[in-house]
Design a protein around this nucleic acid. Structure first.
Lengths: 214, 214, 214, 214
DNA sequence: CATGAATGAGTGTTCATTCAT
DNA sequence: CATGAATGAACACTCATTCAT
């Protein structure tokens, strides 16, 4: 006899199963907002609606909670855009600017980018996370950018610059914006804020002009 | 025969004069290595070869110790660079590349650049430090870059781009290198290391070409 | 057979409920014995049979612990006394003497009166505590005395003296006894001890006679 | 050959001889103002114009400095007034009020009274000081007051009250004023200040009326 | 004698972690 | 499983006291 709880678990049970997920979610918010050291485990537990002791039932200590948060929330911002990118018809210069703006809108501007800032900040204390991040995020992203630049060169639109270096000319401003957004940004008066899209546009255009073969 | 004390100050005195410098050096090391919050003042003192109490004889509190470290290792270099910059004769394009390379050689490549990474990492937890850094370091540096770009525009060498945005096209790659150096870098195999000067050179040239009026 | 846990709460729970009271009692002892500044919170905790951290579970800081001690041991008794006072029927002269004796028996003669001595001793170093004490203890007590004196005047029993000054003719001897008890008293040979109730009685009678309209 | 320094010592030498005195003076001010615990020996030394180390040349530790300050500065407020008192012709009631006012003007209102407050405050930590103070100050003062009261009784002006108790009716308000002046007083708004002479006058008159034989 | 640099034991307070219930 | 009371090791900062010069 199939009881209700087989298909639609009671609230209690559903929550129980979700405990780790809810804790990870709460921890993500707080770690991103405050960093590792300044986040108190009790606050994480409270935000997840459980007691402090319960958190330690699921994660043996704060460090492991942190690592789980990072591993769980690292987003692969490449996968989504790669397909669209491949279909793009038109000048590579326009593609480059479009790609950078898309990266910002879909990733840099979202909460998810907080995890990148977090990793950059804490990498030296958690080397394994840094390695993990490099493999999962940086390498694919670099490859994508590299392919776009190579496309421009192959099509004769760009000069044959050193692609391995040029890709950082593309990524650095984006990462800079992410870092800024999560560090100095909140401390700055509005008059000193940076308009991300305006900056990306102008930077992309400078880059394309700098790369162009004319 | 002149005694030692005629030419060299007494041990006590000599040490006394050296104390602030020794403490600042130890503090720089530890702040860069562990961040502001995770650095314990006692460890700074011990590394400088004195007791905890002695540190507070020279710096009233941890925050002021940090500010002194910043002044010694970041503010001074930037100011020195600015002075040399003013004497530069020649094309602004060359000046820009030279400035970026100098920034790297004199600051980015040194231990002191860890301070910038630290600020980026912990600004949100220590708003006072962030404000201090913005006023003492970022604003002067931005003004310097802005003046170079404006020089190029005024001399007709650069197009009249938005200087407030372009300035980040100059700084972002430098800060990216610093972040990289102090976070992901140490975890990367040598094959994936970035050659900072080669990157800066190429980026500067892309930028100059992108800015140029021809 | 009903188990113990049916009638008595579990050891943990019982202790938990008792904690604040035990801490307040230990704190009263030590504050009175050593003063505010010289009392270490850890010693309070230890005397209450808990660790230092536990104290901060119940009181956010040393100052609030002290305020709680004052509320428990000074404010409450004063308020209770005031209530009984209101019900008093009879001559104001008798009321005055009765009030002074009650004040002594219920407060002055107890450990709690050490708080008044402590405040007199340390007020200048802890202005916040002084203000707190003035608002919570002195003002209500003064108001009570003032109302009694006014009652005597209104009923024609007392001459219309300056009530704001006369109030100190009532309080000063009481505070003098408290100061004496907690400072010089313990150092005096028994032959020189003051008999508090005899003194209060005679002083009250002198006062009433001095105030009386006959 | 009598050199100048025999009669008028050089500033240097004079100061050297006065060192202990200057230290005691500086210490008096600070102990009275802040109490024993809150007074820092360095501040005492600075105010006396010497270095911290020098203070320990003259006083082996803080406690002994404190005791020296007290012993040195305890004033015998009786001696001066006793002679005048003996010559007083007229009603004892007037004598009593005059004596109380004089005590206040010549002692209570001066800095010297700070030492009484200090002793009352710290007596429990320095029992030997309390004993010393009792012998040197309290006993003579009590004797004087007692003699005045006895004079009133002997002359038939006062009723035969218990003189050993009544003397506290005289002293308590005076000591209360001293304590108030050095503790709560400075923390109170001007509207709540006590006018010492007005209070003493009214209290003395209440007392005299209470004592009088009519 | 005098200095003041140096010390280190202590203070209030925080917080990750444990464990009896 | 879940709780939350309890712990104790840190940490920044203070200050009486010492001692080489």
């Amino acid at each position: 006899m199939a009881s209700v709880s087989d298909t639609l678990p009671h609230k209690r049970e559903r929550r129980k199963q979700d405990r780790p997920g809810e804790l990870l979610e709460a921890a993500l918010d707080l770690f991103v907002e405050k960093g590792f050291a300044a986040t108190r485990v009790e606050e994480v537990a409270l935000r997840a609606g459980v007691s402090k002791g319960t958190l330690f039932l699921y994660f043996p200590n704060k460090e492991d909670l942190f690592k789980a948060v990072v591993r769980e929330n690292v987003v692969h911002p490449v996968n989504q855009g790669a397909a669209e990118l491949a279909q793009f018809q038109g000048k590579t210069g326009e593609l480059l600017e479009w790609m950078m703006l898309q990266w910002w809108r879909r990733y840099g501007a979202t909460k998810a980018s907080g995890i990148s800032k977090l990793i950059m900040s804490e990498a030296s204390n958690f080397p394994d996370l840094a390695t993990f991040f490099r493999e999962e995020v940086i390498k694919p992203a670099d490859a994508m950018v590299r392919s776009v630049l190579q496309r421009g060169i192959d099509q004769g639109e760009f000069r044959p610059v050193n692609v391995d270096l040029a890709l950082h000319s593309v990524m650095a401003p984006l990462l800079f914006l992410v870092m800024w957004k999560h560090s100095m940004g909140p401390c700055c008066p509005t008059s000193e804020q940076i308009d991300p899209e305006a900056f990306i546009s102008q930077h992309a255009q400078l880059l394309v002009r700098g790369l162009s073969n004319s």
